[in-house]
Amino acid sequence: MKCWNCETDTSGSPFCPTCGKIAERPAGTSHFAIFDLPLAYDVDVPALEKQFRELSLRLHPDRFAQAEAKERRLSLEQTTALNEAYKTLREPTRRAFYLLKMYGVDLEREDTGTQKDMPFEFLEEVLDLRESLEDAMAAKDLEQARKMATDVEARRKAALTEAVDMLRSLERSPSDEAAVKKASHALGRVRYFTRFLEQVEAFEEEALS
């Protein structure tokens, strides 16, 4: 990408190395690229946080209040992109979902057909779990709900670990379709378990209020 002001090659850096103006980013720049990180699961979070603070100070719209319109707009845009990238990368689960998307599986997609991807047996299990929770809620049995939550939380962690293992192995062999599928199923389980735990939490709040 060339600098919009002086045409120097900014090559992915947030500011032009020659004139110091905020650099433009190509459309679809990944969250990893914003922090100049490789596409990999393992991220040094304290270092990421430090980088985030520095960059957000340097890009802060207040600093560009007197600048020309183009740079004011870039300051806003890059700050938004930076915040989004930081929010996604600092949190392991979000980071894993985002990486999976980089491998072509977007679990946020809502169009027809994509949902059927989870194994039938697993969906059956989720339905059973939700039915048991519904029974516990109807009986106002907080103990039972908590017991189920402890079990589901352990399974959620195990599923995330499995997904991370797959994502790490994909860094070595990015075109391993079977690993992508396994990562996608594991993260799918994470999502369903998370939903279950949210329901228990809501029930706890209601029961204790």
Binding site: E110, T114, L123, E124, V126, L127, G188, R191, Y192, R195
Partner: peptide, 13 residues
Amino acid sequence: GLVGAPACGDVMR
């Protein structure tokens, strides 16, 4: 028919 939405974690039978 048993389907789920990984976007939100909900299930429908």
